[in-house]
Design a protein around this nucleic acid. Structure first.
Lengths: 248, 248
DNA sequence: GCGAGGGCTTGATCTGGATCAAGCGCAGCG
DNA sequence: CGCTGCGCTTGATCCAGATCAAGCCCTCGC
Protein backbone atom coordinates (compact mmCIF):
# COMPACT_ATOMS: atom_id res chain seq x y z
CA UNK A 1 0.00 0.00 0.00
CA UNK A 2 1.32 3.42 -0.89
CA UNK A 3 1.75 6.16 1.68
CA UNK A 4 -0.81 8.53 0.18
CA UNK A 5 -3.46 5.84 -0.10
CA UNK A 6 -4.17 5.30 3.57
CA UNK A 7 -5.44 8.86 4.18
CA UNK A 8 -7.52 8.66 1.02
CA UNK A 9 -9.27 5.54 2.24
CA UNK A 10 -9.61 6.96 5.71
CA UNK A 11 -11.37 9.92 4.17
CA UNK A 12 -14.12 7.88 2.54
CA UNK A 13 -17.55 8.29 4.18
CA UNK A 14 -17.44 4.59 4.97
CA UNK A 15 -14.23 4.83 6.98
CA UNK A 16 -13.94 8.38 8.19
CA UNK A 17 -15.93 8.04 11.42
CA UNK A 18 -14.61 4.77 12.73
CA UNK A 19 -12.23 4.43 15.67
CA UNK A 20 -8.59 4.80 14.76
CA UNK A 21 -7.89 1.39 16.23
CA UNK A 22 -10.56 -0.24 14.12
CA UNK A 23 -9.22 1.42 11.04
CA UNK A 24 -5.73 0.21 11.74
CA UNK A 25 -6.91 -3.33 12.32
CA UNK A 26 -8.83 -3.24 9.08
CA UNK A 27 -5.85 -1.96 7.14
CA UNK A 28 -3.50 -4.54 8.57
CA UNK A 29 -5.37 -7.28 6.78
CA UNK A 30 -5.80 -5.26 3.62
CA UNK A 31 -3.54 -5.20 0.61
CA UNK A 32 -3.34 -3.29 -2.63
CA UNK A 33 -2.97 -4.70 -6.09
CA UNK A 34 -2.73 -3.34 -9.62
CA UNK A 35 -4.62 -5.06 -12.41
CA UNK A 36 -4.37 -4.70 -16.18
CA UNK A 37 -7.30 -3.52 -18.29
CA UNK A 38 -10.04 -5.96 -19.17
CA UNK A 39 -9.44 -8.30 -16.26
CA UNK A 40 -12.31 -10.15 -14.61
CA UNK A 41 -11.85 -9.25 -10.93
CA UNK A 42 -14.76 -11.22 -9.57
CA UNK A 43 -17.41 -13.40 -11.06
CA UNK A 44 -21.03 -13.39 -9.97
CA UNK A 45 -21.73 -16.37 -7.76
CA UNK A 46 -18.27 -16.38 -6.19
CA UNK A 47 -18.14 -16.19 -2.39
CA UNK A 48 -17.57 -12.66 -1.10
CA UNK A 49 -14.09 -12.65 0.37
CA UNK A 50 -12.99 -9.06 -0.03
CA UNK A 51 -14.42 -5.60 -0.05
CA UNK A 52 -12.90 -3.79 -3.03
CA UNK A 53 -11.82 -0.16 -2.97
CA UNK A 54 -10.96 1.42 -6.31
CA UNK A 55 -7.99 3.77 -6.01
CA UNK A 56 -7.25 4.23 -9.71
CA UNK A 57 -8.97 3.23 -12.93
CA UNK A 58 -12.55 2.33 -13.70
CA UNK A 59 -14.29 -0.91 -12.83
CA UNK A 60 -17.45 -2.17 -14.47
CA UNK A 61 -20.05 -4.09 -12.50
CA UNK A 62 -22.10 -6.31 -14.74
CA UNK A 63 -24.40 -9.28 -14.59
CA UNK A 64 -24.98 -12.18 -16.90
CA UNK A 65 -27.67 -14.74 -17.42
CA UNK A 66 -28.43 -17.23 -20.15
CA UNK A 67 -25.57 -15.98 -22.25
CA UNK A 68 -26.78 -12.39 -22.06
CA UNK A 69 -24.98 -9.67 -20.20
CA UNK A 70 -25.68 -6.18 -18.94
CA UNK A 71 -23.79 -3.43 -17.18
CA UNK A 72 -25.12 -2.53 -13.76
CA UNK A 73 -22.73 0.26 -12.78
CA UNK A 74 -19.25 1.68 -13.15
CA UNK A 75 -17.13 2.39 -10.10
CA UNK A 76 -14.38 4.98 -10.16
CA UNK A 77 -11.88 6.32 -7.65
CA UNK A 78 -12.36 6.53 -4.81
CA UNK A 79 -15.27 4.16 -4.44
CA UNK A 80 -15.99 0.72 -3.02
CA UNK A 81 -18.01 -2.15 -4.33
CA UNK A 82 -19.76 -5.37 -3.28
CA UNK A 83 -20.15 -4.24 0.30
CA UNK A 84 -23.51 -5.96 0.65
CA UNK A 85 -22.27 -9.37 -0.38
CA UNK A 86 -19.37 -9.09 2.09
CA UNK A 87 -21.71 -8.22 4.90
CA UNK A 88 -24.11 -10.98 4.10
CA UNK A 89 -21.29 -13.42 3.52
CA UNK A 90 -23.26 -14.30 0.41
CA UNK A 91 -22.28 -14.89 -3.22
CA UNK A 92 -21.69 -11.83 -5.38
CA UNK A 93 -24.72 -10.90 -7.46
CA UNK A 94 -22.58 -9.10 -10.00
CA UNK A 95 -19.29 -9.61 -11.77
CA UNK A 96 -16.60 -6.96 -11.94
CA UNK A 97 -14.01 -6.25 -14.60
CA UNK A 98 -11.44 -3.53 -15.02
CA UNK A 99 -12.11 -1.14 -17.87
CA UNK A 100 -8.56 0.17 -17.70
CA UNK A 101 -5.47 -0.40 -15.62
CA UNK A 102 -6.73 -0.26 -12.05
CA UNK A 103 -5.32 -0.17 -8.58
CA UNK A 104 -7.53 -1.78 -5.98
CA UNK A 105 -7.41 -2.25 -2.23
CA UNK A 106 -8.75 -5.54 -0.97
CA UNK A 107 -10.14 -5.72 2.54
CA UNK A 108 -11.04 -9.15 3.94
CA UNK A 109 -14.77 -9.45 4.43
CA UNK A 110 -14.34 -11.30 7.69
CA UNK A 111 -12.38 -8.40 9.19
CA UNK A 112 -15.12 -6.07 8.07
CA UNK A 113 -17.80 -8.11 9.76
CA UNK A 114 -15.79 -8.51 12.93
CA UNK A 115 -15.18 -4.80 13.25
CA UNK A 116 -18.63 -3.42 12.85
CA UNK A 117 -19.72 -5.71 15.65
CA UNK A 118 -17.31 -3.86 17.91
CA UNK A 119 -17.26 -0.34 16.52
CA UNK A 120 -20.68 1.29 16.51
CA UNK A 121 -19.51 4.34 14.61
CA UNK A 122 -18.34 2.09 11.83
CA UNK A 123 -21.62 0.18 11.91
CA UNK A 124 -23.48 3.46 11.46
CA UNK A 125 -21.28 4.34 8.50
CA UNK A 126 -22.00 0.99 6.93
CA UNK A 127 -25.71 1.58 7.47
CA UNK A 128 -25.53 4.91 5.71
CA UNK A 129 -23.50 3.50 2.87
CA UNK A 130 -25.89 0.61 2.34
CA UNK A 131 -28.95 2.80 2.54
CA UNK A 132 -27.40 5.00 -0.13
CA UNK A 133 -26.60 2.01 -2.34
CA UNK A 134 -30.10 0.70 -1.93
CA UNK A 135 -31.64 3.97 -2.91
CA UNK A 136 -29.36 4.21 -5.92
CA UNK A 137 -30.55 0.87 -7.27
CA UNK A 138 -34.16 1.72 -6.60
CA UNK A 139 -33.68 4.85 -8.68
CA UNK A 140 -32.11 2.85 -11.44
CA UNK A 141 -35.01 0.39 -11.43
CA UNK A 142 -37.50 3.25 -11.48
CA UNK A 143 -35.80 4.72 -14.51
CA UNK A 144 -35.90 1.39 -16.31
CA UNK A 145 -39.58 0.83 -15.62
CA UNK A 146 -40.94 4.34 -15.99
CA UNK A 147 -38.92 5.91 -18.76
CA UNK A 148 -38.43 5.12 -22.44
CA UNK A 149 -34.98 4.77 -23.98
CA UNK A 150 -34.89 8.33 -25.21
CA UNK A 151 -35.98 9.65 -21.85
CA UNK A 152 -33.31 7.64 -20.09
CA UNK A 153 -30.66 8.95 -22.40
CA UNK A 154 -31.87 12.52 -22.10
CA UNK A 155 -31.87 12.44 -18.33
CA UNK A 156 -28.51 10.73 -18.26
CA UNK A 157 -26.99 13.49 -20.36
CA UNK A 158 -28.57 16.14 -18.21
CA UNK A 159 -27.27 14.46 -15.07
CA UNK A 160 -23.76 14.28 -16.48
CA UNK A 161 -23.86 17.91 -17.39
CA UNK A 162 -24.92 18.82 -13.86
CA UNK A 163 -22.25 16.62 -12.28
CA UNK A 164 -19.64 18.33 -14.44
CA UNK A 165 -20.76 21.66 -13.02
CA UNK A 166 -23.73 22.56 -15.17
CA UNK A 167 -21.53 22.88 -18.22
CA UNK A 168 -23.19 22.78 -21.64
CA UNK A 169 -20.52 20.49 -23.04
CA UNK A 170 -18.71 17.47 -21.68
CA UNK A 171 -17.14 14.17 -22.68
CA UNK A 172 -18.85 10.86 -22.03
CA UNK A 173 -16.97 9.14 -19.20
CA UNK A 174 -17.47 5.65 -20.61
CA UNK A 175 -17.66 3.87 -23.94
CA UNK A 176 -20.98 4.15 -25.68
CA UNK A 177 -21.60 0.43 -25.84
CA UNK A 178 -21.19 0.28 -22.08
CA UNK A 179 -23.46 3.24 -21.60
CA UNK A 180 -26.05 1.57 -23.80
CA UNK A 181 -25.94 -1.57 -21.72
CA UNK A 182 -26.16 0.42 -18.53
CA UNK A 183 -29.19 2.28 -19.82
CA UNK A 184 -30.81 -0.97 -20.89
CA UNK A 185 -30.60 -0.80 -24.67
CA UNK A 186 -28.44 -1.91 -27.59
CA UNK A 187 -25.52 0.15 -28.94
CA UNK A 188 -27.38 0.58 -32.23
CA UNK A 189 -30.36 1.98 -30.46
CA UNK A 190 -28.24 4.37 -28.42
CA UNK A 191 -26.48 5.56 -31.53
CA UNK A 192 -29.71 6.30 -33.36
CA UNK A 193 -31.37 7.82 -30.34
CA UNK A 194 -28.44 10.15 -29.77
CA UNK A 195 -28.74 11.37 -33.29
CA UNK A 196 -32.47 11.85 -32.94
CA UNK A 197 -31.87 13.97 -29.84
CA UNK A 198 -30.58 16.57 -32.25
CA UNK A 199 -34.15 17.78 -32.34
CA UNK A 200 -34.23 18.03 -28.54
CA UNK A 201 -31.25 20.28 -28.09
CA UNK A 202 -28.29 17.88 -28.02
CA UNK A 203 -25.41 17.60 -30.42
CA UNK A 204 -23.01 14.68 -30.24
CA UNK A 205 -19.60 14.51 -31.83
CA UNK A 206 -17.79 11.31 -31.00
CA UNK A 207 -17.71 11.14 -27.23
CA UNK A 208 -18.26 14.89 -26.88
CA UNK A 209 -21.77 16.01 -25.97
CA UNK A 210 -22.99 19.55 -26.44
CA UNK A 211 -26.27 20.63 -24.98
CA UNK A 212 -27.52 23.33 -27.30
CA UNK A 213 -30.96 23.80 -25.77
CA UNK A 214 -31.16 22.86 -22.13
CA UNK A 215 -34.84 23.75 -21.80
CA UNK A 216 -35.85 21.53 -24.67
CA UNK A 217 -33.78 18.63 -23.37
CA UNK A 218 -35.25 19.05 -19.90
CA UNK A 219 -38.74 18.96 -21.34
CA UNK A 220 -37.99 15.50 -22.67
CA UNK A 221 -35.96 14.22 -19.72
CA UNK A 222 -38.18 15.66 -17.01
CA UNK A 223 -35.44 15.22 -14.41
CA UNK A 224 -36.70 14.16 -11.01
CA UNK A 225 -34.63 14.02 -7.82
CA UNK A 226 -36.49 10.83 -6.90
CA UNK A 227 -34.96 9.11 -9.92
CA UNK A 228 -31.92 11.11 -10.88
CA UNK A 229 -30.75 11.91 -7.40
CA UNK A 230 -28.81 13.04 -5.71
CA UNK A 231 -29.82 12.31 -2.18
CA UNK A 232 -29.96 15.70 -0.47
CA UNK A 233 -27.66 14.20 2.11
CA UNK A 234 -24.62 14.71 -0.02
CA UNK A 235 -23.58 14.32 -3.60
CA UNK A 236 -21.20 11.58 -2.60
CA UNK A 237 -24.03 9.42 -1.43
CA UNK A 238 -25.57 6.95 -3.77
CA UNK A 239 -24.89 8.15 -7.28
CA UNK A 240 -24.38 4.79 -8.77
CA UNK A 241 -23.62 5.46 -12.29
CA UNK A 242 -20.99 6.00 -14.83
CA UNK A 243 -20.24 9.17 -12.92
CA UNK A 244 -19.49 7.53 -9.59
CA UNK A 245 -19.62 4.22 -7.87
CA UNK A 246 -19.61 2.57 -4.54
CA UNK A 247 -22.11 -0.18 -5.06
CA UNK A 248 -22.59 -2.98 -2.58
CA UNK B 1 -51.02 -1.68 20.19
CA UNK B 2 -52.43 -5.14 20.82
CA UNK B 3 -50.87 -7.52 23.32
CA UNK B 4 -49.89 -10.17 20.77
CA UNK B 5 -48.27 -7.66 18.45
CA UNK B 6 -45.28 -6.72 20.57
CA UNK B 7 -43.78 -10.22 20.57
CA UNK B 8 -44.42 -10.49 16.85
CA UNK B 9 -42.44 -7.34 16.18
CA UNK B 10 -39.76 -8.36 18.62
CA UNK B 11 -39.38 -11.57 16.67
CA UNK B 12 -38.57 -9.86 13.38
CA UNK B 13 -34.94 -10.21 12.27
CA UNK B 14 -34.64 -6.46 12.49
CA UNK B 15 -35.61 -6.29 16.16
CA UNK B 16 -34.84 -9.66 17.66
CA UNK B 17 -31.22 -9.04 18.61
CA UNK B 18 -31.45 -5.57 20.08
CA UNK B 19 -31.23 -4.78 23.77
CA UNK B 20 -34.49 -5.11 25.64
CA UNK B 21 -34.17 -1.51 26.77
CA UNK B 22 -33.71 -0.27 23.23
CA UNK B 23 -36.71 -2.22 22.10
CA UNK B 24 -38.86 -0.77 24.83
CA UNK B 25 -37.77 2.76 24.04
CA UNK B 26 -38.54 2.19 20.40
CA UNK B 27 -41.98 0.83 21.16
CA UNK B 28 -42.84 3.67 23.48
CA UNK B 29 -42.82 6.09 20.59
CA UNK B 30 -44.57 3.69 18.25
CA UNK B 31 -48.25 3.37 17.62
CA UNK B 32 -50.50 1.11 15.63
CA UNK B 33 -53.19 2.11 13.23
CA UNK B 34 -55.68 0.36 10.98
CA UNK B 35 -56.27 1.65 7.48
CA UNK B 36 -59.00 0.86 4.95
CA UNK B 37 -58.23 -0.68 1.56
CA UNK B 38 -56.94 1.51 -1.22
CA UNK B 39 -55.51 4.19 1.01
CA UNK B 40 -52.37 6.09 0.05
CA UNK B 41 -50.18 5.66 3.12
CA UNK B 42 -47.22 7.63 1.90
CA UNK B 43 -46.39 9.50 -1.24
CA UNK B 44 -42.98 9.47 -2.89
CA UNK B 45 -41.10 12.65 -2.10
CA UNK B 46 -42.58 13.00 1.38
CA UNK B 47 -40.10 13.26 4.24
CA UNK B 48 -39.49 9.94 5.96
CA UNK B 49 -41.05 10.25 9.39
CA UNK B 50 -41.93 6.69 10.29
CA UNK B 51 -40.73 3.20 9.71
CA UNK B 52 -43.78 1.12 8.81
CA UNK B 53 -44.37 -2.42 10.00
CA UNK B 54 -47.18 -4.33 8.34
CA UNK B 55 -49.04 -6.51 10.85
CA UNK B 56 -52.08 -7.39 8.73
CA UNK B 57 -53.04 -6.84 5.10
CA UNK B 58 -50.98 -6.19 2.01
CA UNK B 59 -49.27 -2.95 1.09
CA UNK B 60 -48.13 -2.04 -2.41
CA UNK B 61 -44.99 -0.02 -2.96
CA UNK B 62 -45.11 1.82 -6.23
CA UNK B 63 -43.46 4.68 -8.05
CA UNK B 64 -44.73 7.25 -10.46
CA UNK B 65 -43.22 9.60 -12.97
CA UNK B 66 -44.64 11.72 -15.77
CA UNK B 67 -48.11 10.34 -15.21
CA UNK B 68 -46.92 6.76 -15.45
CA UNK B 69 -46.84 4.37 -12.55
CA UNK B 70 -45.32 1.03 -11.70
CA UNK B 71 -45.39 -1.41 -8.83
CA UNK B 72 -42.05 -1.95 -7.14
CA UNK B 73 -43.00 -4.48 -4.48
CA UNK B 74 -45.74 -5.80 -2.22
CA UNK B 75 -45.19 -6.04 1.52
CA UNK B 76 -47.12 -8.51 3.64
CA UNK B 77 -47.17 -9.42 7.33
CA UNK B 78 -44.88 -9.30 9.09
CA UNK B 79 -42.62 -7.04 7.10
CA UNK B 80 -41.31 -3.50 7.23
CA UNK B 81 -40.85 -0.89 4.58
CA UNK B 82 -39.02 2.34 3.78
CA UNK B 83 -36.24 1.63 6.23
CA UNK B 84 -33.61 3.23 4.00
CA UNK B 85 -35.39 6.56 3.70
CA UNK B 86 -35.83 6.69 7.48
CA UNK B 87 -32.16 6.06 8.05
CA UNK B 88 -31.06 8.60 5.51
CA UNK B 89 -33.65 11.07 6.72
CA UNK B 90 -34.35 11.50 3.02
CA UNK B 91 -37.56 11.67 0.98
CA UNK B 92 -39.31 8.41 0.17
CA UNK B 93 -38.45 7.11 -3.27
CA UNK B 94 -41.67 5.12 -3.45
CA UNK B 95 -45.30 5.58 -2.58
CA UNK B 96 -47.27 3.05 -0.55
CA UNK B 97 -50.92 2.15 -0.64
CA UNK B 98 -52.97 -0.49 1.13
CA UNK B 99 -54.30 -3.22 -1.12
CA UNK B 100 -56.71 -4.34 1.57
CA UNK B 101 -57.60 -3.40 5.11
CA UNK B 102 -54.25 -3.18 6.85
CA UNK B 103 -52.92 -2.80 10.34
CA UNK B 104 -49.64 -0.98 10.55
CA UNK B 105 -47.19 -0.07 13.28
CA UNK B 106 -45.52 3.29 12.90
CA UNK B 107 -42.11 3.82 14.48
CA UNK B 108 -40.67 7.35 14.49
CA UNK B 109 -37.62 7.54 12.26
CA UNK B 110 -35.81 9.78 14.72
CA UNK B 111 -36.09 7.15 17.49
CA UNK B 112 -34.74 4.60 15.06
CA UNK B 113 -31.74 6.69 14.23
CA UNK B 114 -31.07 7.56 17.85
CA UNK B 115 -31.14 3.95 18.92
CA UNK B 116 -28.80 2.36 16.45
CA UNK B 117 -26.21 4.89 17.47
CA UNK B 118 -26.36 3.46 20.96
CA UNK B 119 -27.18 -0.20 20.42
CA UNK B 120 -24.60 -1.96 18.27
CA UNK B 121 -26.60 -5.16 18.07
CA UNK B 122 -29.44 -3.22 16.56
CA UNK B 123 -27.07 -1.46 14.17
CA UNK B 124 -25.87 -4.84 12.98
CA UNK B 125 -29.45 -5.98 12.43
CA UNK B 126 -30.14 -2.87 10.40
CA UNK B 127 -27.03 -3.56 8.34
CA UNK B 128 -28.20 -7.06 7.57
CA UNK B 129 -31.67 -5.90 6.73
CA UNK B 130 -30.42 -3.21 4.38
CA UNK B 131 -27.94 -5.50 2.70
CA UNK B 132 -30.79 -7.92 2.07
CA UNK B 133 -33.01 -5.17 0.67
CA UNK B 134 -30.22 -3.98 -1.56
CA UNK B 135 -29.60 -7.41 -2.94
CA UNK B 136 -33.30 -7.90 -3.54
CA UNK B 137 -33.51 -4.80 -5.73
CA UNK B 138 -30.36 -5.73 -7.59
CA UNK B 139 -31.98 -9.06 -8.39
CA UNK B 140 -35.10 -7.33 -9.56
CA UNK B 141 -33.09 -5.02 -11.82
CA UNK B 142 -31.15 -7.97 -13.21
CA UNK B 143 -34.39 -9.72 -14.08
CA UNK B 144 -35.69 -6.63 -15.84
CA UNK B 145 -32.56 -6.18 -17.90
CA UNK B 146 -31.65 -9.75 -18.68
CA UNK B 147 -34.95 -11.56 -19.12
CA UNK B 148 -37.82 -11.19 -21.55
CA UNK B 149 -41.41 -10.89 -20.37
CA UNK B 150 -42.15 -14.56 -20.79
CA UNK B 151 -39.00 -15.50 -18.93
CA UNK B 152 -39.85 -13.17 -16.08
CA UNK B 153 -43.31 -14.63 -15.81
CA UNK B 154 -42.06 -18.18 -15.98
CA UNK B 155 -39.50 -17.66 -13.26
CA UNK B 156 -41.99 -15.79 -11.13
CA UNK B 157 -44.40 -18.72 -11.30
CA UNK B 158 -41.65 -21.16 -10.49
CA UNK B 159 -40.56 -19.06 -7.53
CA UNK B 160 -44.11 -18.88 -6.19
CA UNK B 161 -44.48 -22.59 -6.50
CA UNK B 162 -41.27 -23.14 -4.55
CA UNK B 163 -42.28 -20.66 -1.85
CA UNK B 164 -45.56 -22.47 -1.45
CA UNK B 165 -43.62 -25.67 -0.77
CA UNK B 166 -42.86 -26.94 -4.26
CA UNK B 167 -46.53 -27.53 -4.93
CA UNK B 168 -47.63 -27.92 -8.53
CA UNK B 169 -50.65 -25.68 -8.02
CA UNK B 170 -51.18 -22.42 -6.18
CA UNK B 171 -53.17 -19.21 -6.22
CA UNK B 172 -51.62 -15.94 -7.29
CA UNK B 173 -51.17 -13.79 -4.17
CA UNK B 174 -51.92 -10.51 -5.96
CA UNK B 175 -54.12 -9.15 -8.71
CA UNK B 176 -52.85 -9.80 -12.19
CA UNK B 177 -52.68 -6.16 -13.17
CA UNK B 178 -50.44 -5.54 -10.19
CA UNK B 179 -48.30 -8.54 -11.03
CA UNK B 180 -47.99 -7.26 -14.57
CA UNK B 181 -46.80 -3.89 -13.36
CA UNK B 182 -44.38 -5.50 -10.96
CA UNK B 183 -42.95 -7.64 -13.72
CA UNK B 184 -42.64 -4.63 -15.98
CA UNK B 185 -45.34 -5.24 -18.57
CA UNK B 186 -48.96 -4.39 -19.37
CA UNK B 187 -51.91 -6.45 -18.13
CA UNK B 188 -52.76 -7.36 -21.72
CA UNK B 189 -49.31 -8.69 -22.28
CA UNK B 190 -49.38 -10.71 -19.07
CA UNK B 191 -52.73 -12.17 -20.00
CA UNK B 192 -51.55 -13.27 -23.42
CA UNK B 193 -48.21 -14.49 -22.18
CA UNK B 194 -49.86 -16.60 -19.50
CA UNK B 195 -51.98 -18.25 -22.10
CA UNK B 196 -48.99 -18.86 -24.32
CA UNK B 197 -47.21 -20.55 -21.42
CA UNK B 198 -49.68 -23.36 -21.97
CA UNK B 199 -47.06 -24.73 -24.33
CA UNK B 200 -44.43 -24.53 -21.59
CA UNK B 201 -46.18 -26.58 -18.96
CA UNK B 202 -48.43 -24.05 -17.21
CA UNK B 203 -52.20 -23.93 -17.01
CA UNK B 204 -53.95 -20.90 -15.61
CA UNK B 205 -57.55 -20.75 -14.47
CA UNK B 206 -58.46 -17.38 -13.02
CA UNK B 207 -55.97 -16.78 -10.27
CA UNK B 208 -55.16 -20.47 -9.95
CA UNK B 209 -51.93 -21.63 -11.52
CA UNK B 210 -51.20 -25.27 -12.28
CA UNK B 211 -47.74 -26.31 -13.31
CA UNK B 212 -48.25 -29.33 -15.52
CA UNK B 213 -44.67 -29.77 -16.68
CA UNK B 214 -42.11 -28.42 -14.29
CA UNK B 215 -39.15 -29.43 -16.44
CA UNK B 216 -40.46 -27.62 -19.47
CA UNK B 217 -41.24 -24.50 -17.47
CA UNK B 218 -37.79 -24.57 -15.91
CA UNK B 219 -36.21 -24.82 -19.34
CA UNK B 220 -37.83 -21.50 -20.20
CA UNK B 221 -37.36 -19.79 -16.83
CA UNK B 222 -33.82 -21.00 -16.21
CA UNK B 223 -34.11 -20.12 -12.54
CA UNK B 224 -30.93 -18.72 -11.03
CA UNK B 225 -30.28 -18.11 -7.34
CA UNK B 226 -28.44 -14.92 -8.30
CA UNK B 227 -31.70 -13.51 -9.65
CA UNK B 228 -34.50 -15.45 -8.05
CA UNK B 229 -32.95 -15.79 -4.64
CA UNK B 230 -33.19 -16.62 -1.97
CA UNK B 231 -30.07 -15.53 -0.19
CA UNK B 232 -28.65 -18.71 1.35
CA UNK B 233 -28.66 -16.80 4.61
CA UNK B 234 -32.32 -17.49 5.20
CA UNK B 235 -35.49 -17.53 3.25
CA UNK B 236 -36.72 -14.55 5.20
CA UNK B 237 -33.92 -12.41 3.88
CA UNK B 238 -34.43 -10.35 0.83
CA UNK B 239 -37.29 -11.85 -1.09
CA UNK B 240 -38.80 -8.63 -2.18
CA UNK B 241 -41.71 -9.70 -4.12
CA UNK B 242 -45.31 -10.35 -4.12
CA UNK B 243 -44.43 -13.22 -1.81
CA UNK B 244 -42.81 -11.15 0.91
CA UNK B 245 -41.70 -7.69 1.70
CA UNK B 246 -39.51 -5.61 3.92
CA UNK B 247 -38.20 -3.10 1.52
CA UNK B 248 -36.34 0.00 2.63
C1' DG C 1 -82.28 -8.71 -8.15
C1' DC C 2 -80.26 -5.47 -10.84
C1' DG C 3 -77.19 -2.02 -12.33
C1' DA C 4 -72.44 -0.14 -12.35
C1' DG C 5 -67.77 -0.47 -12.12
C1' DG C 6 -63.49 -2.69 -12.43
C1' DG C 7 -60.56 -6.55 -13.53
C1' DC C 8 -59.62 -9.64 -17.06
C1' DT C 9 -59.47 -11.33 -21.73
C1' DT C 10 -59.37 -11.00 -26.74
C1' DG C 11 -58.69 -8.96 -31.14
C1' DA C 12 -56.55 -5.56 -34.31
C1' DT C 13 -53.08 -2.51 -35.04
C1' DC C 14 -48.95 0.11 -34.25
C1' DT C 15 -44.26 1.02 -32.95
C1' DG C 16 -40.02 1.16 -30.12
C1' DG C 17 -36.39 -1.19 -30.04
C1' DA C 18 -33.85 -5.62 -31.30
C1' DT C 19 -31.57 -8.09 -34.75
C1' DC C 20 -28.94 -8.82 -38.86
C1' DA C 21 -25.63 -7.11 -41.97
C1' DA C 22 -22.42 -4.06 -43.89
C1' DG C 23 -19.23 -0.32 -44.04
C1' DC C 24 -16.38 3.28 -41.65
C1' DG C 25 -12.63 5.07 -38.87
C1' DC C 26 -9.50 5.01 -35.39
C1' DA C 27 -5.96 2.81 -32.24
C1' DG C 28 -2.62 -0.68 -31.43
C1' DC C 29 0.83 -3.50 -33.18
C1' DG C 30 3.86 -6.04 -35.96
C1' DC D 1 3.42 2.03 -42.35
C1' DG D 2 -0.02 -0.91 -43.42
C1' DC D 3 -2.70 -4.67 -41.35
C1' DT D 4 -6.09 -5.97 -38.00
C1' DG D 5 -9.54 -5.58 -34.68
C1' DC D 6 -12.94 -3.23 -32.48
C1' DG D 7 -16.09 0.40 -31.49
C1' DC D 8 -19.30 3.04 -33.78
C1' DT D 9 -22.65 4.15 -37.28
C1' DT D 10 -26.16 3.24 -40.79
C1' DG D 11 -29.51 0.74 -43.27
C1' DA D 12 -33.06 -2.94 -43.71
C1' DT D 13 -35.94 -5.93 -41.53
C1' DC D 14 -38.25 -8.19 -37.76
C1' DC D 15 -40.64 -8.87 -33.60
C1' DA D 16 -42.01 -8.35 -28.71
C1' DG D 17 -44.77 -5.81 -26.45
C1' DA D 18 -47.65 -1.40 -26.19
C1' DT D 19 -51.80 0.73 -27.42
C1' DC D 20 -56.56 1.09 -28.70
C1' DA D 21 -60.99 -0.84 -28.52
C1' DA D 22 -64.53 -3.90 -27.29
C1' DG D 23 -66.73 -7.43 -24.81
C1' DC D 24 -67.08 -10.62 -20.65
C1' DC D 25 -67.67 -11.66 -15.97
C1' DC D 26 -67.55 -11.20 -11.28
C1' DT D 27 -68.29 -8.35 -7.19
C1' DC D 28 -70.30 -5.00 -4.71
C1' DG D 29 -73.75 -1.75 -3.47
C1' DC D 30 -78.22 -0.15 -3.76
Amino acid sequence: MRPHELPEIRHLPLFRDMLQGSFETLMQGAYAQTFPAGLELIRQGDPADFLHVVMEGQVELHAQWAGRECTMAVVRPVGTFILAACIRDAPYLMSARTLERARIILIPASDLRAIFHRDTEFAVSVINELAGCYRAVVRHAKGLKLRTSRERIASYLLRQSVLAGNVPSFVLPVEKRLLASYLGMTPENLSRALKSLDAEGVRVDGSRVIITDRAKLSALARPDPLIDGPDPEGASAGVALPPVGRLG
